Computed example of a mutant assay.
Amino acid sequence: MLSEQSAATVRATLPVVGAAIGQITERFYDGLFAARPELLRDLFNRGNQAAGTQRQALAGSVAAFATHLVEHPDTRPDAMLTRIAHKHASLGIAPEQYALVHEHLFAAIVEVLGEAVTDEVAAAWDEVYWLMANALIAIEKRLYDEQGGPSWRLWEVTERVQETPDVVTFRLRPLDGAPVRDFRPGQYVSVRTALSDGARQIRQYSLSGAPGTSERRISVKRVPGGTTPQGEMSNHLHARVHERSVLELSEPYGDLVLDEVPDSTPVLLASAGIGVTPMIPMLAHLAATGHPAPVTVVHADRSPADHALRADHETYAAKLPAAAVHLWYEQDAPTGAHTGRADLTGVTVHPGTRAYLCGPLPFMRAVRAQLIEKGVSPADVHYEVFGPDLWLAGA
């Protein structure tokens, strides 16, 4: 791990670098895109760049990695690295791109911190960067090896279903008719398509169908603001993609997955809004395997009319021998559902529960806190953040 000399330097300079990391990442992206504009056009999410969330996520990951190295020198934050590596693999990131990032990141550090970046400081943070980069490269290589290498494949839309006013489901089949790799419940694919200005933007969407089929199913929520980079892909898919349209999809990736759960292990699936999408294949898998232990389904939404995939939620839960469904709606809650935001106070959480969360950050933070209060081990609470991981960034 980090050498003793570099660890001392990083520990001493971490407060200064941490205080300036937001400014550093802003300068980094400005420099990178000035030198390589095609990366913003065809690789990086323009919506996240416009909103500043990607800068926040990068700053949070670098600071968290450096802090871990000096506080826990004998271990590595593999959970964080694996999450990042899955996202990178879904985008097709190549090892040589890390040298490009290094060039512009360290130029930004020198620009922001000036004379404070002595040779000793530069060497120490260089070591931090390459420890993180090489760890990611190794994990990404393993992921690529499992999938047969980074690849994009053409898929044809076979059906379009309007789930709610703001959510559309697309069913897709491979255009080449070749066999399809199965996915693990909870994984996502990257979707790449050309927008009206010629940019080939990429977004990740959870696979919302049941595993074990030759099709892919994604459910896309339209994000307001389609005339700006924020929401441009979802608005494009809603407006322009119909049956017989063709999209490019990556292989499945993502580390929020429902691994084989022992029959005696209770499971809790908590979602809000479009966060329901990875929960449906998890619930479908539990139903298909007849999971005998208690399964608790928690979902919160604006109204029943906004609850995408609600029929799947109810159908799969009904197939389980010991399932309990708890629904919260901010308005128009029917009999049996709750009005307001999700609150686990009255929900039975069984000992030994393994929990999976997906939804807005405030929702996941609140649910996680209540689960821990009810005795769930923090190690057994797993989550998925759509977009840049701002939980890590402290947002």
Rank of each mutant, 00 (worst) to 15 (best):
K141V: 03
L143D: 11
L143M: 14
L143V: 10
Y144S: 05
P150I: 06
P150V: 09
P150M: 08
S151Q: 14
W152F: 09
W152G: 01
W152M: 09
W152Y: 08
R153C: 12
W155E: 09
T158V: 11
T158A: 05
T158N: 06
T158H: 07
R160M: 07
V161G: 05
Q162F: 13
E163D: 14
E163K: 12
T164D: 09
T164I: 10
P165S: 11
D166E: 13
D166Q: 13
R171A: 01
L172Q: 00
R173V: 14
R173P: 00
L175D: 02
G177T: 09
R181I: 12
R181N: 14
F183S: 07
R184F: 07
G186W: 00
G186F: 02
Q187P: 13
Y188I: 08
Y188G: 07
S190W: 05
S190M: 10
V191P: 06
V191N: 09
A194E: 15
L195Q: 12
L195I: 15
S196P: 09
A199W: 08
A199D: 15
Q201I: 00
I202S: 03
S206W: 01
L207R: 00
L207S: 02
G209D: 01
A210W: 00
P211K: 02
P211M: 03
T213S: 13
T213R: 13
E215P: 00
S219R: 04
V220G: 05
V220C: 10
V220M: 05
V220A: 06
R222H: 10
R222M: 13
R222W: 04
V223S: 03
T228P: 01
P229S: 13
P229K: 10
P229R: 08
P229Y: 08
P229M: 12
Q230K: 08
Q230I: 13
Q230N: 11
E232Y: 02
M233P: 00
M233R: 03
S234E: 02
H236N: 03
L237N: 02
L237S: 04
H238G: 04
H238A: 10
H238K: 09
R240E: 13
H242D: 13
E243T: 15
E243V: 14
R244I: 04
R244K: 14
L247G: 04
E248W: 04
E251G: 07
Y253Q: 03
G254W: 05
